[in-house]
Each structure stands twice: as structure tokens, then as C-alpha cells.
Simulated scan of single mutants.
Amino acid sequence: MPERVALVTGAARGQGAAIVRRLRARDYGVVAVDVTRPESDDPSVVALAGDVRGERGWERAVVTGSEYVVDGGQLLRI
């Protein structure tokens, strides 16, 4: 069951997607953000479409990520 949650940007492909996979292998919950919404059917990954080049994008990603808790090995929206 993941007890730690990481926020990964650029998560739809390349290094970002590899980081998501590595964090999941280490049992992290992940909030995955990319301009193109990352695809995931993993219940411990919350996928968001967003642009974090500006302050508003970061705020949305962090606020959305903070709306989730770990419960029974899944990220659940509170």
C-alpha cells in the first residue's frame, strides 16, 4: 500500500513516464501531470492534463494532488 505520494510532471511519455513507473515499483502513489493527459489504469496513479509552466498550473496540480489520500493501496479523492 503506498504511503507516499509523488507529483511527476511530463508524465505522459519519455523520462516522466519512466519516473512514474519507477515510483510505482517503489510503492509510491503518483499524481501524473502532462499537457497531454497521461494514461493509466493503475488505481494508485492520478492522471491530470495540465500545463505547469506557470504558477496557476502548479497550483492546480498541487491542490488536486492534495485532494487524495492513500487507502487500501489506492489513491482516493477526499
Rank of each mutant, 00 (worst) to 15 (best):
V52Y: 01
R56A: 09
R56K: 03
A6V: 02
A47E: 08
V46L: 13
G72V: 11
P43T: 15
D51P: 08
V63I: 00
W58E: 07
R4E: 05
V33T: 05
I19A: 06
Q74T: 06
G57I: 05
G65Q: 12
V62F: 01
P2Q: 00
G16S: 12
V46M: 12
R22W: 07
G14F: 09
P2S: 00
W58R: 13
R77I: 06
Y68D: 06
V62E: 00
G10Q: 13
A11Y: 09
L75Q: 05
R60P: 04
S40L: 11
T36I: 05
L7Q: 00
Y68V: 10
R4Y: 07
T9C: 09
V69R: 12
A49R: 15
G14P: 03
R60T: 13
D34I: 12
R77A: 04
W58F: 13
R53N: 10
E39P: 08
V45S: 02
V63F: 01
P2M: 00
G10S: 14
D51S: 11
V69Y: 02
V5W: 09
P43C: 12
T64D: 05
S40M: 11
R13P: 04
P2L: 00
V52Q: 01
R26Q: 15
A49Y: 10
V35R: 15
L23K: 09
G65E: 14
L7M: 00
G10C: 13
G14A: 07
V62D: 00
R26H: 14
D51R: 14
Y28A: 02
R24S: 09
S40E: 12
